[in-house]
Design a protein around this nucleic acid. Sequence first.
RNA 1: GCCCGGGUGGUGGAAUCGGUAGACACAUCGGACUUAAAAUCCGAAGGCGUGAGCCGUGCGGGUUCGAGUCCCGCCCCGGGCACCA
Length: 815
Amino acid sequence: MSHSTETYFPAEIERKWQGRWDEAGTNTYSDAALREKGASGKPFFNLMMFPYPSAEGLHVGNIYAFTGADIYGRFQRLRGHDVFEPIGFDAFGIHSENYALKVGTHPMELIPRNIERFTKQLRRVGFMYDWSHTVDTTSPEYYRWTQWLFLQLYKAGLAVKKEAPVNWCPGCNTVLANEQVIAGECERCGSAVELRNLSQWFFRITEFAERLLQNLQWIDWSDTTKRMQENWIGRSEGAEISFPVAGDVDDPIRVFTTRPDTLFGATYMVLAPEHPLVERITTSAQREEVERYTAAVAATDLVNRKKTDKEKTGVDTGARAVNPVTDQEIPIWVADYVLMEYGTGAIMAVPGHDQRDFEFAERFGLPIRRVIAPEAVDSGAPLTEAYTGPGRIVNSGQFDGMEWREAKKAITEELEAKGLASVQINYRLHDWCISRQRYWGPPIPVLYCDACGTVPVPEDQLPVILPHVQDYKPDTSGISPLARHSEWYLTECPSCGGEARRETDVSDTFLDSAWYFLRYPSSGNDEAPFDPDITRRWLPVDMYIGGNEHAVLHLLYSRFITMVLHDLGHLEFEEPFHRFRAHGLIVKEGAKMSKSRGNVVVPDEFIEEYGADTFRTYLMFIGPYQEGGDFREAGITGPYNFLNRLWDTVLSAEDREMDGAVEQKLHATIQKCTEDLDALSYNTAIAAMMEYLNVVRAGGRTPEREAVLPLVTLVAPFAPHMAEELWERLGNTGSIFDSGEWPGFDPEKAVADDVEFVVQINGKVRARLPMRRGITEDAARAAALDDGNVQRFIEDKAVRKTIFVPDRLINLVVG
RNA sequence: GCCCGGGUGGUGGAAUCGGUAGACACAUCGGACUUAAAAUCCGAAGGCGUGAGCCGUGCGGGUUCGAGUCCCGCCCCGGGCACCA
């Protein structure tokens, strides 16, 4: 190929176009434009998960996530949509605060610096962001509305302060939401979490459990994400059954069970050590032992308590309960394998059919009774482990012989009639604890007044500004650092004018991010959190792309908050993201990138050496976007060579009629790229473009202009700067992304006229014959039988059967 | 333990309504160009075999004219959940 074209200098081109986009406002909307496009255009809200602006700067994981989302947005724009693609910063939270404490710089100085650095880096990668609509969760203009949100929930009775056992992280010195505890450890610092009884603010997300679960059926989300939410919500159907305490006329013990069919096998009961009834029912003879036990459990952290492999422990309360179907008195024990957080904090123990109860009963010599048998008869042989399979009821009076699932209903109904049971649905989901005994977050907008009690801060007094204080270090007291600043928390009661104290806890960072997408298009609005008109036009989000690590955190909370705002009349929709796709994880040599492993890829170096276009294309070429892949430094040369060759090819193209075979390949490539981009199958779209480029350049031929022009558009989502430059050099003005000219294709022209036709003998390939498309079975068969190698394999055997797959193969079955 | 996802050349990965396994790329090797190198361009390449061919998609069975793809039973890796009653 002739090398008369000029060399590709990515740095120069990228700087030029990034400047041009800013000057021309290529990617930004004025508020007027948002209204106009929302009303009469084709609005498309393309969202990606906004980053936490860490001091380390943008990492490869961020860029990977954003690039995949940006490509989708640019693709939609080239197809003629008005794409709104904003970005912002999720800058409150323990992570930034811990870092600030470590380096000794106040977060109020640190965060703006980090945001500035992030912004610079993000611009360098060439994302299509609307920089006129950003969001910073730490700015008072933003958290004013986060506080407003709290007040709406408070007014609706969905934000309540209650004392409950909560997760306390001794590393971060704050309580945590259940979603932030991973296997008993703090997701932030890895400390073993403890249970503390504290009075905290909760959002009543459990009220929405069923809707959150049901809506999963119609929202278009990655299956993996939906399944994670489903498991997290953890619906189980069963019954709540009351067991009266023998010789006690007060409250019975209520238990939740999914197996009411095994009620006749309930030979003892267990209360969680924290259960409020423990103290009342324990006999004086057992009191000392029980108190010693519950105290020991209270001192244990959750990691140790929830270990399933340790030996079961517990003590007898001395009290007896009455099994409501057998009328037998059964012992009531206290044991830490029963958790206060789930169900009623008490269980009926059925050692014959529950392995945990079985182990406990064996250890403490409690009776074990079989009440389900696969063959409907009890051989009388002692069980060696709990039987949890299906079967028929035995040893259960009038229910004997009943199929176990029928017995669930029958036994529940029997007790329901006596007022001792009710059908119950239980969820694993807990209310969302939003209080944090930390500094770096929005103060919860509530006041406490001796005369008036709990008083919400009036909306016209928002925001409650987070004060700039120097001693913001948390301590072990369970009280927020702001509680050390009376000059801040002492104030006037808006209700009676007397002295009031401010709530000194701040809210969970996940509240900040639970509504940010609503704020983006209304980011400048100081009258309301979101403009009703703009919101109606642009939301819900058309496409949301992000990581699965937020499946049960941010994504669940956002759905909840949206549902609440819908119910309160602020939104017309109740699901914020109709379409969500989870991207995969980018790793290095099979391992997660981390500072401790020392395998962190610094993106800036690659961008400097190869350019942002190459880096973007390489990241997408690594593997399937929704599965992630392995970052290998050497691999970047593939996409780099491709873009270089593309540059050369386009600039050296000449005007002449397109070759037929090239035209066919062009249509096939457009079709493949269009379908692949729609499906986020970016790696195969890039491969298709490479393949096409190889055809266009085959044997050093000079390419036709017509053949390469559409390729510039196809590559534009991946390499936007190069696409703009080539588009301009080909004589166009303005941005290629405003052309709305995604190339079309003719499926008829996308298929080749000649096919390589396979001949199989008994399923094994014996010949490959060049054929015309559309060849008949008879003609194919004749051609096959004419082939020497085929004849050799048939020999004198008879062809018993022929399988013909049009345009692909013919299989001759002989023998 | 339960629920997902995955296991394909030296490497990253293509191909799953059952129909030519290994597209595309990296690394490798050979050639052209060059005083030389880099860059670029052209070409080779799953393994075994001189060859016809045989063997090959984690392992063992099965269904089928035909299995990477479907069924049964395992192993391994990654992720989620977990004394959840």
